[in-house]
Structures are given as C-alpha cells and as structure tokens.
C-alpha cells in the first residue's frame, strides 16, 4: 500500500484532458467520506444527546421586541 502510494506520488501531473487518476479517486473519496463521517457524527451526537432535551421556552421567555417599542 505504501509502495503504491509512493509510486502514485511520484507520477507526474495529469495533462489537462485526462481520465480520473488513482490519486484523483483517493483525494475525492477521502475528502467526501471524511466530511460525511464528521457531519454524521456531529448530528448523531446532537440529536441523541440524552441530557439535552430541546429547550422549550414559554411564550414570555421569547421576546421578539416587537411590542411596546
């Protein structure tokens, strides 16, 4: 695997018109997968956190400043 990565790293840049290279796939899949995993983890934690019940504010607690001004 490491040898393959080194080999890919030493290949010259792709010309302007080209097919997807192995490193192109690596960068695209790694980037998208890592961001997707991160955002999934975050929303999973946010939505399943047991101690944080959604704050339900009483009407008087939410002031919109649109009265009495």
């Amino acid at each position: 695997m490491i040898a393959w990565l080194i080999a890919q790293a030493t290949t010259t840049s792709a010309p302007a018109v080209t097919e997807m290279t192995a490193m192109g796939w690596v960068f695209m899949i790694t980037s998208i997968t890592s961001v997707t995993i991160l955002v999934s983890f975050c929303y999973f934690k946010v939505l399943t956190r047991p101690s944080t019940v959604e704050h339900m504010h009483a009407p008087l607690d939410i002031d919109t400043r649109d009265q009495g001004t």
């Binding site: 790293a9 192109g24 796939w25 960068f27």
Partner: peptide, 13 residues
C-alpha cells in the same frame, strides 16, 4: 476537479 496536479511534467505534490 479532483485530479491532483502541479506544473507540466511535475509530480502532483
């Protein structure tokens, strides 16, 4: 969009 590239004839890194 995603192929890594540098100058002509150069390794991408």
């Amino acid at each position: 969009m995603w192929n890594p590239k540098a100058g002509p004839g150069e390794p991408w890194w």
